[in-house]
């Protein structure tokens, strides 16, 4: 995933503590069509491991993780 990727949906979970970002993602993914690309913004380092683990469990695709100056963008494709 590169910085030019345009997500269909952006979830801003910056400043939320664990498990906030993952729960924000789960809540939204339930409502989205297959093929939707989601950008999850998080300042919680644990999200970079918890989110991929959940995607594996739930059968969605991790497209990539970008580290920015003060947060991470996690890109997900809904299946």
């Amino acid at each position: 995933m590169t910085e030019t990727t345009e997500p269909d949906v952006t979830i801003d979970s910056r400043d939320a503590t664990c498990p906030g970002p993952l729960m924000d993602l789960i809540g939204r993914v339930k409502t989205l069509e297959p093929g939707t690309v989601v950008e999850l913004q998080t300042t919680e380092r644990n999200s970079t491991t918890d989110v991929p683990e959940w995607l594996e469990e739930a059968g969605h695709d991790l497209l990539g993780i970008d580290e920015r100056d003060d947060h991470w963008n996690i890109y997900v494709e809904v299946n």
């Binding site: 503590t17 664990c18 498990p19 993952l22 918890d50 683990e53 959940w54």
Partner: peptide
Amino acid sequence: YPINRAHG
């Protein structure tokens, strides 16, 4: 519990 452990 919703996440990968028993509590937040």
